[in-house]
Design a protein around this nucleic acid. Structure first.
Length: 803
DNA sequence: GCTTTGATCTTACCC
DNA sequence: ACGGGTAAGATCAAAGCG
């Protein structure tokens, strides 16, 4: 029993919600809300008044009251049940009777579910798989990273929780219309582990350095004495305790570093106590490490959101984000940590490198925080959960909140067989170079189709069911039916999201684009867009709680219908179509006709088709989904080609990019050919940087699970045998060496290969020539011609190829 | 016994 | 661990050939 500090009645407390978790004390659940109050005090609000529950869905043939009676009889045999309430809910839009089973303890729900699901008349149990803390968030319409007001009493901080105040809730939290973040304390850190052979091993290799950066500007660095890291880790723990950060940021912390530090600490017989409740970081949902009372953010998880960053190193990420890493950038590869450490003068550089990385993490965090906060607010998952959660789960959590508001039960997640369905249409392009091409595309095509046709899991009418009085929309080709009224669950969600984004963008248009508030709104509209666009994919995801194949199938069918209609209409207007993919058409630039076309389509199809891009010149090969266009501002827009792929050697990508520039911008095929020949010569002369020869490929399963041998798998096996820990998702960098036999037998991890053993002819004939020829074959060039010694005798003019 | 061919595996892209 | 549509290269075994 916690004593009140004084006898005053409860007071109102304004706070910003950082994190939420639950604890069981004396067999009773408590919601713990970690926050920052209006005066910047760190607080813990404990709510003991929220009862966990789940639902029993009743068979529609049964009398609900008699089922309730039977459940009551059973209740006598089962402890833990606090109460039963007969209610009406909806499941996939259908009204159902449901018994709300209130339990004393969230951990006992699973014990209650089993016997009660067997009661006659009970069809199934639902929502027992919703975590107690998430339940609290949903039912109270609370989102992390928002401001709330709550009635509280201050109590003694008996358990030495690391906060300024411990409070008990006397009411539910109420959302306050207040923008912005409190002054957060953020600690960024980067440790260096000794790597004697391959990846560092916690039972063998010590922590040499931990560099820390506070967002107050202060920096601290802890360095081991020889190989003894006990004090390094202790000093780090002390540093965390003293600075008391709200957010701890790192790089590779979730998959690697926290666990490593925990194990090293344990090896020295102490615990890595860095959280606010005197505990150790622990594994939590979606594979992240949770630090109670603080938010643990891994910059690497943020990098996963950026497909443009192919190999997710801290340096690549920083370069992509245009972070200034100073003039004297040091880069020390992991393989060199040990030799750097052993050398007195080089050790200084290693220490500097660790600090630079910590600073870099701190800067990246600053750039990603708005986005993560907005994501957390919209989706309703705490910051550290939401950044780790896959898109499908984020979308689903957003839906779960909305479902609660309209009384929809949350369906269970079930295993389903994979049955493919037909998706969007891709037209075969007209190969060659085209001038003055406009790209028209449907604005948010799939979301708008779902809205327009009221496609939703709760509006679907199965084949044998009679049509409702409101009538139905029937999907073309596939024939699925959806009731026209009332508006479905998805229609509501998507309309809200689309309107919300419009409103945010409207606000933004009247603001200074450099202001903090603008940045915040920009992050908000991006997040809204991401969730909007994810809904269609969600509907076809086998793991989705609201999975309904006809929903996904019908959306795609209507999409095909609309794009085909548009093409037909365009042709009727006398407009030539060059290419199209799913929701876009590439069309000759005739402004008046295009305007008329868009107007006609809006009137006939109810969806907006709008000009999106204009290409002065655009080049297509025979292939779909691969082209390159020259935009009005002179930049190249390269799509699908090797240039934008991460699994070609840089040398091949650079050559292709230059070829495209020469051809599209300079209109010089001759120049392109000359360039390719020069580069080939440079490769033979070993004048190309070694790093330009590395090929990166993702390991998508463990090396043994592959059915056929492949170069990157072979390279991965070599790395594993040399002591490197590889996991699924790792990018393997390898080069092809000279020799006989299969390609995979000649693949070698780049860290083990020397330039002299590289097979230059492979890079010429299998990397550079194919990627150059992808473009140049359009102009009648062949491999032989690119390999010929003399400069092209009589090149054709670019104008000969313009269609 | 050799090369050619095609199915299959694999990755990464587009929208 | 959101969907389907697509290109492309390497491997591997069957087919084709003399």
């Amino acid at each position: 029993m916690i004593d009140k500090l004084d006898n005053k009645t409860s007071v109102k407390c304004l706070f910003w919600l950082l994190d939420i978790n639950y604890e069981i004390k004396d067999n009773k659940p408590e919601i713990w809300m970690w926050g920052i109050d209006g005066k910047g005090k760190r607080i813990l609000v404990i709510d003991r008044n929220f009862t966990p529950y789940f639902y029993l869905v009743l068979n529609s043939q049964e009398n609900p009251n008699s089922v309730l009676e039977r459940v009551r009889e059973k209740q006598a045999e089962i402890p833990h049940i606090a109460d039963l309430e007969l209610t009406v809910r909806r499941l996939f839009g259908q009204p159902v009777y449901a018994i709300k089973v209130l339990c004393q303890n969230p951990e006992s729900i699973s014990e209650v579910v089993k016997p009660l699901s067997k009661v006659n008349g009970v069809e199934k149990c639902l929502e027992h798989d919703i975590r107690y803390s998430m339940r609290y968030i949903i039912d109270n319409n609370v989102s992390p990273c928002g401001w709330y007001e709550i009635e509280v009493n201050e109590v003694k901080n008996d358990s030495k929780i690391q906060v300024d105040k411990v409070l008990t809730a006397q009411s539910s939290p109420i959302r306050i219309d207040k923008e912005g973040l409190p002054q957060l304390k953020i600690l960024s850190f980067y440790p260096i582990f000794y790597a004697s052979k391959g990846s560092p091993k916690p039972n063998r290799d010590p922590v040499l350095i931990i560099a820390t950066v506070f967002n107050t500007g202060e920096k601290k660095i802890f360095v081991a004495k020889n190989h003894d890291d006990s004090s390094v880790i202790k000093d780090f723990i002390e540093c965390v305790k003293k600075f008391d950060p709200d957010i701890i940021a790192g790089f590779e912390t979730n998959r690697l570093q926290w666990q490593y530090l925990i194990e090293r600490a344990n090896k020295h017989n102490f615990n890595l106590i860095v959280d606010r409740a005197n505990g150790v970081p622990h594994i939590s949902v979606y594979g992240h490490m949770s630090i109670t009372g603080r938010i643990n953010l891994d910059i690497l998880d943020f990098a996963e959101e950026l497909p443009e960053v192919k190999v997710k190193t801290l340096e690549n990420l920083a370069d992509y984000l245009k972070i200034d890493r100073g003039k004297q950038q040091i880069f020390i590869d992991e393989t060199e940590y040990a030799p750097y450490w052993e050398n007195e003068t080089k050790r200084v550089e290693l220490i500097k490198f660790a600090m630079e990385r910590a600073e870099c993490i701190s800067q990246i965090l600053g750039m990603m925080l708005n986005y993560t906060v907005e994501l957390s607010k919209l989706v309703g998952l705490p910051l550290d959960h939401v950044i780790k959660a896959a898109v499908g789960f984020r979308t689903e959590w957003y839906m779960i909140r909305e479902a609660y508001k309209v009384g929809e039960l949350i369906p269970e997640r079930i295993d389903r067989p994979y049955i493919p369905y037909v998706g969007g249409i891709v037209l075969s392009p007209k190969p060659g170079i085209h001038e003055n091409i406009t790209v028209l595309d449907f604005k948010s095509m799939y979301p708008n189709i779902m809205i327009e046709k009221n496609i939703s899991p709760d509006t679907y009418i199965p084949p044998l069911e009679p049509d409702p009085p409101s009538g139905v929309n029937i999907a073309p080709e596939v024939g699925h039916k959806f009731r026209k009224e009332p508006p479905g669950f998805y229609k509501k969600i998507l309309s809200n999201l689309l309107t919300a984004r419009e409103e945010i963008r409207k606000k933004m248009s009247q603001m200074d684009s450099k202001s903090d508030e603008y940045g915040l709104l920009d992050a908000r509209q991006r997040v809204v867009k991401v969730i909007t666009n994810a809904v269609y994919g969600y509907t076809g995801w086998l793991g989705a709680r609201w999975f309904q194949k006809p929903v996904a199938e019908a959306v795609a069918a209507w999409g095909r219908d609309m794009i085909l209609s548009s093409i037909k209409m365009a042709r009727e207007f006398g407009l030539e179509i060059i290419y199209g993919d799913t929701d876009s058409i590439f069309i000759e630039h005739q402004p008046q006709k295009i305007e008329m076309l868009c107007k006609t389509i809006k009137e006939n199809l109810g969806l907006e088709l709008k000009p999106d891009k204009f290409y002065q010149r655009v080049l297509f090969t025979e292939a779909k989904k691969r082209y390159c266009g020259l935009l009005s501002d002179g930049t190249l827009d390269t799509v699908g080609l090797e240039v934008v792929r991460g699994d070609w050697a840089k040398i091949a990508k650079d050559v292709q990019e230059k070829v495209l520039e020469m051809v599209l911008r300079e209109r010089s095929v001759e120049g392109a050919v000359r360039f390719v020949k020069e580069r080939i010569k440079k490769i033979r002369e070993q004048k190309v940087p070694f790093t330009d020869l590395i090929i990166w490929k993702t390991l998508t399963k463990s090396a043994e699970q592959y059915e056929v041998n492949a170069p990157h798998v072979q390279a991965a096996k070599i790395l594993t045998n040399s002591g490197w820990d590889l996991t699924v998702g790792d990018k393997i960098g390898y080069v092809i060496t000279r020799g006989t036999g299969k390609l995979y037998e000649r693949a070698k991890p780049y860290i083990f290969a020397s330039y002299d053993e590289v097979d230059k002819e492979y890079y010429i004939s299998k990397q550079v020539i194919p990627s150059a020829l992808r473009i140049l074959s359009l102009f009648g060039l062949s491999e032989q011609k690119l390999l010929e010694d003399e400069i092209l005798i009589k090149p054709k003019k670019l104008t000969d190829f313009i269609g």
